[in-house]
Design a protein around this nucleic acid. Structure first.
Lengths: 260, 260
DNA sequence: TACCTTTGTGTGGTCTGACCACAGGTGTGG
DNA sequence: CCACACCTGTGGTCAGACCACACAAAGGTA
């Protein structure tokens, strides 16, 4: 890992070494650089409108296609949002949807097995321990009520695995958002959601054990919520930790890259 | 969460609620969906080549521009890499550079102040505590040697703030990579790098205190490395924790969105 | 006056077809 | 056997046109 030669595996170092690929000539990247520069400098803020595609193309002396491709990159990063029409919020606007973008990114890279399952589990544990600890202090009564309702919904016997899993996600996300830390919450959401498909796949392969596993998960959740309601952050963190690890241990994960 | 109204704050929930914007008609998104589907299904793996842009456009019955915009999105997410020419690794290839993509994404969103500074600091502490703990167990002798050399380079008095900060980043990244957890390392890199510009700005505003602060940071780093070399994960984590928090406390961060 | 319809204008979304630069492979001539 | 020119397929770029949409302003009608 630390051998510089092997660093290229994951795309190389991000900061520091100025290896600037010489092929920085692609015009849409030049457009991208200019827009990003304005964002980093603070000239462009959330809510600001970019010039029209035709104007931008004219001023930067590139084709409209190049401008559009740059905007597409920014859109993929959840930085801008485009809408047709006129007035109000039409046009391309600097807008912030980091959670969606983060989710898509992690989901793809998890699917590509760039991030091994154990790494993902450890990262989830780390993030959610922290979330639970903070949530025990900061959770509002409404947030707690929402969590209870989610768990109540999970108690229904007639829901399918998919609904069960979505509610499971809702519960963990609710804890993350109750922590009050936007960044940690978004990373938690992205990570949990990136596992949706593999988890559903594993649940499907559970067979007759499904009922037993589901009951175990329900009990775990109740215990976690109880600790949070009592304001016992340390206990909540430990319970979340054990919950996540035992859940992954109980699930029959095939090797990544399962075909449908 | 469950309140649909308030969800829009950070771009809305990522999974679960199927709010499907009805504007799913954009053709480049249809292309994107198909490619992503194949990645999620495991049909497309790292190293695979996509069909040529013209072929893809023909098979999907869309224009080449639509295909290119979809590819641009994937490129922004670090999922594919395009190269001209012929043979070998020419064309558009599924390739994994999550670290770069994650870095760009977080950097932009931090600049847009979607993630408040305290949240970022807490997240960094959380990630790097974990990295340090793991590194104390897993760091190879070569990795430890590289860390020492980085710290030696930081001892030189004639280096500028920018070089100092880059070496600082190198040290923290080295710990993250020594942890053995690719995902945590990439998130750490992305987070540290996303703070590069704000940190440099703050260092610049430090004035005559710079020398004192630099010495403090050097001492912190040595202490952290010592704990890792001794294999004392808990102590390393605590030292990293205090190091990061005290560093941010010492730095005069203006409100985000500073102009140049 | 108040309301509705029509028309205008500017936005992103899409498509077509063409040309360029590049990097291999291929074949020919030495 | 080698060196060169040529061919082919790739992404990169561009220009220009048309569409659908959403709002705004002008106009008509009650």
């Amino acid at each position: 890992m630390t051998e510089p030669a092997a660093a290229a595996a994951s795309g190389g170092r991000a900061g520091g070494t100025p290896w600037h690929p010489v092929t920085r000539n692609r015009s849409h990247e030049l457009v991208l650089d200019q827009i990003e520069e304005q964002i980093l400098a603070g000239t462009l803020r959330v809510g600001d409108r970019l010039p029209g595609e035709r104007d931008l193309a004219g001023h930067l002396q590139v084709s409209r296609a190049a401008v559009r491709e740059a905007i597409r990159s920014l859109e993929a990063q959840g930085v801008v949002r485009s809408a047709v029409g006129s007035g109000k919020d039409a046009g391309t606007v600097v807008s912030a949807m980091p959670s969606q973008a983060l989710t898509r990114l992690l989901r793809l890279h998890v699917a590509l097995a760039n991030f091994p399952m154990p790494d993902v589990v450890d990262a989830r544990v780390m993030l959610e321990r922290s979330s639970a600890t903070l949530a025990a202090d900061n959770a509002s009564p409404e947030a707690l009520r929402a969590m209870r309702e989610t768990l109540d919904a999970m108690d229904r016997a007639d829901i399918g695995q998919e609904t069960f899993n979505d509610l499971d996600t809702d519960f963990h996300v609710a804890i993350a958002e109750a922590s009050g830390n936007r960044l940690v919450a978004d990373m938690t959401i992205a990570l949990r959601d990136s596992m949706r498909r593999p988890i559903l796949h594993a649940l499907h392969g559970l067979g007759s054990d499904w009922g037993r596993v589901a009951d175990r998960l329900r009990a775990d959740h109740r215990a976690i919520l109880a600790a949070i309601e009592e304001g016992d952050g340390a206990r909540a963190a430990d319970r979340v930790d054990r919950h996540i690890r035992s859940a992954y241990d109980a699930l029959p994960f095939a090797e990544m890259g399962q075909r449908d």
